[in-house]
Design a protein around this nucleic acid. Structure first.
Ligand SMILES: [Mn+2]
Ligand SMILES: [Mn+2]
Ligand SMILES: [Zn+2]
Ligand SMILES: [Zn+2]
Lengths: 160, 160
DNA sequence: TTATTATTGCAACTTTATTGCAATAATGGG
DNA sequence: CCCATTATTGCAATAAAGTTGCAATAATAA
């Protein structure tokens, strides 16, 4: 039960390595944001990333948006569009190199990556349409939002 | 090649029947919006619905939002969340009664319904997670956005 | 016709994300 | 180590999609 699971240090090191490996400039916002994603156990929204950045980091809101975009373009992260109009980001190194399915809670919006790669069912497209990738998302209730007993249905939204 | 495919009249009749069948009040916004959806060959955004409503209909922006929500709740339409975080709506009567997959163009955002029902690959969820439904979306380029020849890649966005 | 109340219209507001541009700072060369 | 170059960043303004509160309107039942 050490608190090391919450210590960003090792993730910062890993983030630095990853950013350096791209050949682009290594900046504090890039390293800190990636470290936050590496530390997360699930996909994070822009707001969540902002909240998890140490105060001392002092990264601007817009910069976070741009860094998340940048990380995604470089393959260091990937983003998922959910039902709630919010992008969620996950570090690519999270044992999710290839394509994989996602789960989204229809109550709180939480998104997690699932392991199994969706077995492409070879869907038929109209003439002239060109497939690129298949996205498989399971909708349902996360462990936090599943009611313990079949009552207290309309409970207030929680924030995890 | 008659222009009847563009005439909303038969769809208006069908829409009236569908709205009446719900038992709720039959209003012009509900009928007109549903008629627009029935006439569409693909899923429409709120903005597209607004643009296709006849001027004479004079339906308020907010009412369109509410009617689309209402149609979805009654099962007369269904909505799809795309990568551009915009809801798109499709009349449920469009031969899409049950669950089905979707296609979204990664260039222009167009969404169409696909026929085949995704063969549920029975994904394994973490303990305590409760699946409800599976969404399968094929990303790619629609017929309008597929480049005729492998050049002119960065062409300007079209609007269909 | 009239009463009831579900719907609608309107204005203000919220949330999420984007854009323009000047200021800052990461890197490479001297 | 210092300077020049220019990729990044911060800040303010703006955009786009959708929501909310509430008074006015109109669909239905009596
Ligand atoms: Mn993922
Ligand atoms: Mn559909
Ligand atoms: Zn949840
Ligand atoms: Zn397209």
């Amino acid at each position: 039960m050490s608190q090391s699971a919450n210590s960003p240090q090792p993730n910062i090191d890993q983030a630095e390595d990853a950013v350096r490996a791209t050949g682009a400039r290594m900046t504090r916002p890039r390293v800190m944001v990636l470290a936050v994603l590496l530390e997360a156990e699930r996909a994070l929204t822009h707001t969540e990333v902002e909240a998890r950045l140490p105060r001392a980091a002092e990264v601007d809101r817009v910069t976070i948006y741009r860094v998340l975009e940048w990380l995604t373009a470089r393959g260091l992260a990937h983003k998922i569009a959910g039902d709630d109009r919010v992008w969620r980001f996950n570090a690519a190194a999270h044992a999710h190199a290839g394509p994989h399915a996602h789960f989204q809670c229809s109550d709180c919006g939480e998104v997690i990556c699932l392991q199994e790669a969706p077995a492409r069912p070879a869907l038929k497209l109209p003439a002239g349409y060109q497939p690129q990738r298949v996205e498989l998302t399971v909708k349902g209730l996360c462990a936090h939002c599943v009611p313990a007993k079949p009552r207290a249905r309309a409970a207030a939204r929680h924030s995890h």
